[in-house]
Amino acid sequence: MWASRATRDRPRPSPPSLKSVILSEGRSPKPKDPEELTLTHTLNPFSPKALTPAPTQDPSIL
């Protein structure tokens, strides 16, 4: 029996994740603590939500 080539082919390396590119090229400050790392990893920087400033909760504006 031969091993099936489809499963023996060495998988092509997947493109690097955006986070690793940003970190390696120094385009983003390196996170200092694990919480920040998680936030950077889960937040999509290209979503409109990420570009919109968070609403302020200052009661003086209301």
Binding site: M1, W2, A3, S4, T7
Partner: peptide
């Protein structure tokens, strides 16, 4: 339905 080996 063999997928991981091929009969010769």
């Amino acid at each position: 339905t063999l997928q991981r080996v091929t009969l010769t």
